[in-house]
Every structure is written in structure tokens, then in C-alpha cells.
Design a protein around this nucleic acid. Structure first.
Lengths: 217, 217, 217, 217
DNA sequence: TATGAATGAGGTTTCATTCAT
DNA sequence: CATGAATGAAACCTCATTCAT
């Protein structure tokens, strides 16, 4: 059965209110934002919000869902043998960091802030975002290892370190680090190099034979 | 002039209340914790808290101050030529991660949560914790580079990546990652290796100073 | 555009709450009256009051506004040559004193009490009540002087003295002077005579032998 | 038994605290002034005040007492035949108005404000200040009437009108009327003339009793 | 007697949520 | 289904007063 008109109206209303809520939360934080303010931004009455959402907290959870679904997946080649480790990391980091960038970190800030303090949201964050990401990355790395007939030591910690990099960079930027903001788009490349080759390691990318790469001879 | 009795009593009372507040905040978050609850935990009346602290927010700021002052500095050798990059990173990460560990991440969680949403606290965090840490690390790395007659590319980004690792690992652990909790004490070593030599890089430990450089002899 | 239903409901609610507040203030004074008590008297919840009024102080200011708008103006003949000074004063005092009487001095007491101590209200009192009254009286007396081809010395002080009489009589009555309460309606006449003719001065109203005066037969 | 040292110390302490309270009340009003502030101004601890005064309200009552005792009595000639009505009024008004002036109306404001709203204080004001003043003035006027072999009509209302003038002028000045402030010292004379001779009446001074009367022959 | 920290009742105000219209 | 006024619990904070030192 295709979505009825009612369904479509519902979805539109939902999205409309959610967007108003997101804006408000982003500007003033979750606790400082009142339902009245969200309703005003959305151009509806206070009560109307409660027809669509159970709670003020439900708004935050929905925003969280949205964030989660909008997270882009890295665009990987079908044959992992085509990419070296550095490239793999670059693609992975690129997807993660650009996903955050899209929202200008405003929502990241609000959601992260609540995650740390609201057990329910915290658990969902771990179960629905962090764990799948780590799992995905884990199988990706394993597949890559297999394709390249090599082994990566400390796989678990490595994964967490990569996730930590993403989280930590996002936090620093969310806190107003301007240097990061400016070089955000170059980060995947630079950080991938650093991770793949070690700090101070390897000459930069172009025509570099020494690195882990030695891509497609 | 030595601290008078009054000073000592003041300090004790302060610490007592602050500790109650920290506990309460850690358990329930800043916003969900009421003054009444803190007072109850501290075994004093509501009003008593206001004899020592201006505000509920002042409690949080004081906890922040405490965290800041308790942060250990890395124990470095006087001659940087004695350590290779990996060891340097290990010492640095060790200090940072153990500093966080001491508080079981409860306060880290509360403070970080507010940092993201409270502009005043956010700015202080950046100015008083993050920036000094980055600056300290920057001069450390520069001194090390000089001592080893080498150059580290992307110094700024490298620093931020290291800070990101610390922050990001702390966040993951604060969110309940048990694997991280268990291997927390080994992290400095493993992550330092990873950073110095690259993922999948270099053989473990063996007192290798040349490290990541010359990866494929 | 005629007042909408909403406007009318708003006005009714406003008046209802204001009346409860006025009663409560009148009985217990501004500071001793709690919002809870006003709400109880009005038969609404505490919060409801804040939908209509910003503040506890806003209630007082609104009562003040009401007092101000309800002040009656003296009913003067179109041709001032028709009245002598005594009659002019009588009409003026009559308007002022009956205006106060209407409220049984309960509100006068509360408002006056705060006026003396609350700079904002004090200033408004002076600018919106006292000054216009003095100005109005001043032009009235000037017009009367012109119409009667005479001059009144000390015009400013005279005006202030008349205002003082009104204020002072109101205060004494507000403080519970029963003699004043009983003879309130005769005050305009008697005081006008006193002012126009001097204490112990002049025969009663023209051609009237009956009055109390007839001093030294 | 002469006052012991203890009595003297007590009195000094009392006066000291009272003066601090008066200052504070005058600046900020009774309700806005805290015991802490009074104690600070007096250079003592909060608790010390309670060794001398029962209550915060007792401070106000004591200030009231002080005001009352400091009120100067008019300096009358022993033989009332020497003064005409105008001079009598001048002396009376002079005493009352200069008594108020001495305190710059600051205390008048605070005390009056509370009088209107605090039943106990209101009653004391009427019984201890207003009534004696009216009684004194009444017997004075009666004595004067007898001495001059004349009768004053409306004696009660006249008295209240005179008291009203004093109160009302004080209130206007307390509310910031600058014209009044400037001409304060001339008021007794001008107002006495006005009262004795009628508004617009009589030529200045010369002991003229015929006055304003006979305005329209 | 002076001190001033502790007390805790009580005040104002906010705001998520409900529900009659 | 939208509305938005009403609700009232609950929060933060103040401050007169007490009392151990």
C-alpha cells in the first residue's frame, strides 16, 4: 500500500516541527529551549507538537534518528584489492567527517551533550551509532586484510582509535577550533596518511612508492 | 601568613559540598540534579550551599577547576634525545589518559556535557584546558624535532589528532565501552605505537628509534 | 475593528485577576501578599497569573493605571466668569476627593506605600498623576484669573498646597481617621471656603446665614 | 541612680545600629534592606543586632520613635494675644516642616510607606504622632480664640486641613518635587498667609485680619 | 557579649503538559 | 486536528533568625 495522503501530511508535519526543534536546540541547547519556542518557530501551537511527539525528549530522539540516517556510508570500490590502507582510511574518514560537517556541528553539540548525561540516549547512541560503525569498520578492515593477505594487530583498539579520532575532532571543532574548521576538508587525507604511515612518516601522497600504498603497480 | 583556622574550615566545607555535588552531577547530570539533593548528600541545608557558592553553576565551574588542576603533566626526561617519538607519545598519552581515569569519567561526562552547550564553560574549556594542552604538546614536539634534527609535517593537525584521540577515547569510555575500560592502561602504549608507526606498521617495541620512518628497508 | 472575543476574554480575565490582587494588596499590603494568595482569591492557578502579567510588580502597576484612569475630572461651567474662586475650588476638590473615595482608600494606601519606596512607581506617580493634576489646575486657575481680571499671587505654591490638602486628607483618612470619613462629602465645600476666604475668614457662601460660620455676631 | 556605664554603652550601641538601619532603609526601603546590610554598615555581625533589637521591624519602630521625639515644638510666646492667626500658623507650620526637613525626607518616606501598610505601625502613628499633634493644635487654637475673643468655625476640619497640608507637602517633596525643595523654608510664611487670609487674599503681612473676605463687594 | 555559619521556610517564577473549545 | 490558556509541581534562591563557639 503506497503512503496515503494522511501519511504524507504526517511526515511533512513531523519534518517541519523537527526542523524547528533542531534549529532551536542548536541555538540554545536542549534544556534552555522551551516547547513554546519550538512551536513558535514551527508556526504551530504548543499543543500541536504533542499530537506528533510524546515528549520534549522525543524531539531530541527523533533528531538523533535523523542524524543517524543521514550519516553517509563510505563509497568503497567493489574490489578491496584496488585500495591501499591509506586510501581505505581516507574514504572512511571522509564519509564520517563530511557527515558531521553537513550539520555544522550544531546538532552534534546538542545530541552529544545529552548523550553523555541521559542514560537512554547514551545507550542508544552506543548501540545504534557507535557499535554498528565499529562493527562495519571491523569487517571492512578484516575484508581488506584478507584481500591484501596481511594482518592488522590490535584490531579492536585500532578501530576505537579511529572512532576516537572522528569524535574528538568533531568535539574540538564543535568547541570552536577555527584551524580545524578551515582545514576540515583536508582532514581525511592528512589523518589517513598519519594513521597509515605514522606521525612523521612517509612523504606525502603523490607518486610515493615507500608507503603502505604501492597501490597498483 | 599561614592559612587561618577559618580558611581551613572554609576549604573543608567547600570540598565537602563540592564532592557531594560532583557525585550527584555524575549520577544524574547537571540539569537533573537539584540543589536540595546536593544539600541532602552533603548533609547540610539548602541555604548553606549558597554561603559558599554563588550559584548552581558555580558548583559546576568549581568542579571544572578541580579537574583542571588535577590533570597530571607527563614525566619527561630532561634530555629529549633519550626518547624516540613513540616513547614521547606514550608518556604524553599516559599522562592524559590516567588523569581522566582517576575520576572514573563521571565528572568528565558532566563537565563535557555542559561544555558543549554552555558558552561560558565551553570557552573556558577551550582556553584553559585544550589550548594549553595543545600549546604544551606543540612546543614539546618542536623541541623533540630539534633534538632529533628532523621535521614533523602537519604539526598543527597532528596535535589536534592526538588531542582528538584522547577526547574521543574518553568519550567512548564514558559512554560505557567496556573493552576500552579493560585495556585502558595499555592504551598509551598501543596508541603511541599506532601513531608513531602507522596502523599495521612496524614491529612492536624493539627499542627502535628510527621508527615509522624508513618503513620498508 | 470591534474587539474580538479573545480581546474580551483577555480583558475579563485581566480585570478578574487584578481585582483579586487589589483586594489582597489592600488587605495585607504589597509585600505581605503572595502570588499564591492572589491566585487563590481569583480562583486560578499560580501560573495563570503569569499568562497575563509579567510580574508581581506588574499587578501593582496595573492597579495604579486603573486608579489613574478612573480619576474623575471636575465638571466646570463653560464660562469661568460664572464661578467665583470658592466655587472653583469646591468643584476641583470635589472631583479629587470623590475619586479617592470610590476605592475606599484601600488601593490608595497600597499604591502610595509603594510609591514612596519604589523609584519607578514614584516617578510614574509624579509624572502621570501629580504633574498633570498640577498643570491642569494651573491653567484652570490662570484662566479663572483672566476671566475675573485679577491675579493670584504664589500660584505655584498655591497649587501645591491644594494638592497637599488632597493628598494629606487622603492619607489621614487612609490611616483610619473616622471624623474625616464621616464628613468626607462635606469636605470640598468646607475646605474650599477655608482656602478661598481664609481660616475663620468670610461669611459663608453668599447670602447664606445658616452655616456654621456666622462667627462673631 | 545615674545611668551606669553599661547603660551608656547600651545606648551608644543602640544609636549606632539604629543610625545604620536608618541609612539603609532610607536608601533602599524597608523590605529591600537586609539585616546583613545593616550589620555591615554598622560594622557588627548579624547576630549582634538581635542582642539589642527583637526584630527587623523593631528597628523600624525605633526609628519611628526617634523621629517622633525629634519633632520640634513650635516656639510660642507666652501670651497668645501677641500673635495674630497668621503668625500662629506660621510658627506651627515652621516647626512641623523644619522637623521633616532635618531628615531630608528619607526617613519620612520609609516610615510613611510602612505606616500605610503595617497596621501596628499605622495605629501607633495615628495614636502617637497625629492625634497628639491634632490635640495640641486644637487646644492651641482654642486658647488663641479665647485670647482673641473670637471663634473659629469648623475647628476639627481646620485642624485636619492643616495637618493635611503638612503631610501632603512632605509627600510631594519626598516624591522629588524640586520647586518645593527650593522654597521649603519660605513655605511656613506663604502657606500661613494663604490659610489665614485665603487664596489670593489680603496684602502681605500687616496684621490684617479682615483678609481675603470681602472679595466681591 | 559578639560572631557569622547554618538553617529552612517560603517566595517568585518557569514550563512541560493537558484538555475544553 | 489545531489551539493556547490553564495547570501546578518543582526549581532556585533569599534572608530573618538562631545558637554553638
Amino acid at each position: 500500500m503506497p503512503p496515503s495522503l494522511k501519511d504524507k501530511l504526517d511526515a511533512t508535519r513531523r519534518a517541519h516541527i523537527l526542523s524547528a526543534a533542531a534549529e532551536a536546540f542548536a541555538e540554545r541547547g536542549f534544556h534552555a529551549t522551551t516547547i513554546k519556542e519550538i512551536a513558535h518557530r514551527a508556526g504551530v501551537a504548543d499543543g500541536t507538537i504533542y499530537n506528533t511527539f510524546d515528549d520534549k525528549e522525543a524531539l531530541l530522539l527523533s533528531i538523533f534518528d535523523q542524524l543517524q540516517h543521514e550519516m553517509p556510508a563510505p563509497a568503497l570500490p567493489s574490489d578491496l584489492r584496488e585500495v591501499d590502507l591509506r586510501e581505505l582510511l581516507r574514504l572512511f574518514l571522509g564519509a564520517a567527517l563530511s557527515g558531521l560537517d553537513a550539520h555544522e556541528f550544531r546538532l552534534f553539540r546538542v545530541v552529544t551533550s545529552e548523550i553523555l548525561v541521559n542514560p537512554e540516549l547514551g545507550e542508544r547512541y552506543r548501540a545504534e551509532l557507535l557499535a554498528p560503525m565499529l562493527d562495519g569498520a571491523a569487517s571492512l578492515l578484516r575484508a581488506w586484510s584478507a584481500a591484501h593477505a596481511t594482518t592488522l594487530p590490535h584490531l579492536d583498539l585500532t578501530l576505537r582509535a579511529v572512532a576516537a579520532l572522528v569524535l574528538g575532532l568533531a568535539m574540538q571543532r564543535a568547541l570552536g577550533d577555527e584551524a580545524l574548521a578551515e582545514s576540515w576538508s583536508q582532514l581525511p587525507d592528512t589523518v589517513a596518511e598519519m594513521l597509515a604511515c605514522g606521525i612523521g612518516g612517509a612523504d606525502p601522497q603523490p607518486g610515493d612508492a615507500s608507503t603502505a600504498s604501492a597501490p597498483n603497480p
